[in-house]
Structure formats: structure tokens, C-alpha cells
């Protein structure tokens, strides 16, 4: 199985070299591509100097578009699975093998989950996570223990869907939508690290915006995301 690691990076000059070094040490010889999302710092220069495989957006397009560029690249180059991997050092490469195994067993989405066996703490962020989890349960009848984890692997039949549809953002609402279309989801217990350097993207107003967007998208899914089941899509493709 050919898996592509997609690493979106926006102004990650302080992290990117360590992230890639650590990744190649722990994950072995898996292909990766860095999507430099129009960084204004030295991210692209470092990638070029180090000979990393990277694609540079000419302007900043946002995380969703950066991940989508990775999917388009995967589609063009015939990959069987894509895993989204943060450019700030939070994700660990050692779990990729296990996630691949689940894809091979027939799963469509494998989430690198912090809470399969571990308990969820009661922080503000995790209250948001619980709310999203409850909404997904309401809409699908199934439980996702870590819906906001950014570490997700997608199967081949989803690569095309993500590459061609800009409404398929790599967020929990899309996971919920795909579940309703018949995608099989699994979670693998992982440990995540604190980001190596720099600050997180989320502040209070962005968090509220994020929660509202995800909530509307999940709860109104039947009206706003009319779509055919995955199996039908494959037949017509």
C-alpha cells in the first residue's frame, strides 16, 4: 500500500526541519509532501535547502486548501491512502503503520485518537470536543472519541472526493458527513506531543467561529450536503 503523508505548514520555519527528521526516523521510508501555505517566514527556503518534498502555495489559502492540495497531489500520483500530519510536531510517525493496517482492513477513515483508552480531560477545548462528539452521535448513532484530532488517515476512495470537492474540509463535520454516506471509521490510540515552537492557531473568537461552523455543518447536514452514498459514487466512477 502506498501512503502519502500530507504536512500542511504555515510559518513553521522553527519546526519543520525537526518534524521531517523525526518523521523519517519513526515512520521509515513513507512518502510525504509538505504543503507550504504561502508562509511569510523561511519555511519554503528551509524545505528547498534540505531537499524536502514540498509544494508552495503562492498565497496563503488556509488549512483546508493546503490539505486539499495534498489530496490532489495524492490523486495525481496514485496513492492508496493519505494521512494528514501537523507541521508543528504534535503528531508522531510511529502510529502510521497501525493506522495503515486499519485502512487495509477496509476502513475509510482512521483517526489518530487521544481518547480510545485514555480519559478525556475537562478543559475548554475538550468541552468543545464533547459537544461535537454528541452531535455526531445524534446524527450517525455512532461514537467518535476524538473528533477534533487533526491526525486522520483516509482511504483511496476518499482521496478523489477530497481532491475534487472544496466543501470537504478536513474537519469533524466532514467525517460525520462521510459516515452518513457509508464511510467506515476507526480510531487508533495515539499520544500527541505539545507543539515544538510557536503558538496555536486557535484563539477564543476563532474557537467560537469553529464551533459554530462545525455545529451548523453537522446538524443541518441532511439539508446542506445532499450527496450520493459512497458505494453509488464508486459504481458511477
Amino acid at each position: 500500500m502506498k501512503t502519502l503523508i500530507v504536512i500542511p505548514a504555515y510559518n513553521e520555519a522553527l519546526n519543520i526541519e525537526r518534524v521531517i527528521r523525526r518523521l523519517t526516523e519513526t515512520a521509515g521510508s513513507i512518502d510525504y509532501v509538505i504543503i507550504d501555505d504561502g508562509s511569510s517566514d523561511q519555511t519554503a527556503d528551509i524545505c528547498r535547502a534540505e531537499g524536502f518534498n514540498y509544494i508552495s502555495h503562492p498565497v496563503n489559502l488556509g488549512l483546508s486548501a493546503a490539505v486539499q492540495t495534498g489530496f490532489i497531489y495524492a490523486l495525481k500520483n496514485g496513492y492508496d491512502a493519505v494521512i494528514q500530519f501537523d507541521g508543528d510536531g504534535q503528531h508522531r510517525g510511529e502510529y502510521i503503520k497501525e493506522m495503515e493496517k486499519r485502512i487495509e482492513e477496509g476502513c475509510d477513515i482512521v483517526i489518530g485518537s487521544r481518547f480510545v483508552t485514555e480519559k478525556k480531560p475537562l478543559t475548554g477545548r475538550m468541552i468543545g470536543s464533547r459537544l461535537i462528539g454528541a452531535m455526531i452521535r445524534l446524527m450517525t448513532g455512532r461514537t467518535i472519541k476524538d473528533p477534533t484530532s487533526g491526525m486522520r488517515m483516509y482511504s483511496k476512495r476518499l482521496i478523489r472526493i477530497f481532491a475534487e470537492n472544496s466543501r470537504m474540509t478536513p474537519e469533524p463535520d466532514t467525517v460525520c458527513h462521510l459516515m452518513r454516506l457509508g464511510a467506515k471509521v476507526a480510531e487508533v490510540q495515539v499520544v500527541m506531543d505539545e507543539r515544538i515552537a510557536g503558538t496555536s492557531y486557535l484563539n477564543l473568537s476563532k474557537s467560537i467561529r469553529y464551533m459554530l461552523t462545525v455545529s451548523i455543518s453537522i446538524l443541518f447536514e441532511p439539508w446542506i450536503r445532499a450527496d450520493r452514498k459512497l458505494a453509488e459514487k464508486e459504481e458511477s466512477a
Partner: peptide, 16 residues
């Protein structure tokens, strides 16, 4: 916005 994103992605992939 969608078109701009497509264009920028396309450009980036061509460069690559």
C-alpha cells in the same frame, strides 16, 4: 474564493 484557491493550487502543483 473557490476559483482563486483552485488557481493557486494548480500553480503550486505545476511549480512542483
Amino acid at each position: 474564493n473557490d476559483k482563486l484557491t483552485r488557481l493557486a493550487q494548480d500553480l503550486a502543483l505545476r511549480d512542483h
